[in-house]
């Protein structure tokens, strides 16, 4: 579904230039739940932003469902972000003046759905992430975990092809982290949602079925876990696709 070929990203120019990605290639199939791991500064966020069309690669090719998206004009990228891509930020990135429901349904309205339909979609999405009965609350009235779940609801309400999350649990305690990860797992297992999540917590690995590890802007490992339940054994290292 996603094919990235030789993606490079360089920040700045000249002597101070930082090569954040040095040419990474991989393929992600529909229904996968991928973790991108690696030390701080290894290029995880950079990669995710490029995949989610929030940033441009300096070089390389990137296709979603066969469509070369890296070269789309901004208006189309914007439409792609709206309709095909869900993105969950580390710090929730909710609109503080909007209620949980408004935060979610503003996107449906942008897509051109009626207010009623949009509201219905939003409530469904909020129910899916376990926020039934809290849709009228503003972000300030929600816990960190709940806020992140609103952000997830916002990302999934449009039923995106793929959902990205950049360290979604970084600001959450273990308990709230588990809630969020459970939601991801359920979305992935029950609805077949493709998810790419950046994390550096080793224990998150048990929720995902593939781990891509970055180091200094290169992929150093790409592990598909065995599908059998309860297994913690990792499959032998796959070569990059």
């Amino acid at each position: 579904m996603i094919v990235a070929k030789n993606i490079k990203r360089c920040y700045g120019t000249g002597e101070t230039a930082v090569k954040a990605l040095k040419g990474v290639s991989f393929k992600i199939d529909k229904g996968e739940f991928v973790a991108i791991m690696g030390a701080s500064g290894s290029g995880k966020t950079t990669l995710l932003r490029i995949l989610a069309l929030l940033d441009d690669a300096t070089d390389g090719e990137y296709t979603i469902r066969g469509l070369e998206v890296s070269s789309l004009p901004e208006a189309e990228r914007s439409y792609y972000r709206l309709t095909q891509v869900g993105y969950v930020f580390q710090d929730y990135a909710l609109i503080n003046e909007m209620s949980a429901a408004e935060n979610v349904y503003v996107l449906s309205m942008m897509e051109g759905k009626s207010k009623k339909e949009s509201y219905k979609t939003a409530l469904e999405a909020l129910d899916k992430v376990g926020l039934k009965g809290k849709h009228d609350r503003v972000p300030d009235e929600l816990s960190g975990g709940e806020k992140q779940r609103v952000a997830i609801a916002r990302a999934i309400a449009k039923k995106p092809d793929i959902m990205f999350a950049d360290e979604p649990c970084a600001n959450l305690d273990t308990n709230n982290s588990k809630q969020v990860l459970d939601v991801f797992k359920e979305l992935n297992e029950k609805y077949g949602q493709t998810i790419v999540m950046v994390t550096h917590e080793p224990w998150h690995v048990e929720y995902v079925n593939r781990v891509i590890t970055l180091e200094d802007g290169n992929i150093i490992s790409d592990d598909r876990k065995l599908k059998e339940k309860g297994s913690t054994e990792l499959s032998s290292q796959n070569s990059n696709h």
Binding site: A52, L54, A75, R81, L82, Y87, I95, L107, M110, A155
Partner: peptide
């Protein structure tokens, strides 16, 4: 500003 960036990031058009 951040909010505007977020709105854009999730697909709200600059015109809105």
């Amino acid at each position: 500003k951040k909010e505007i960036g977020i709105l854009k990031a999730v697909g709200i058009t600059p015109r809105s």
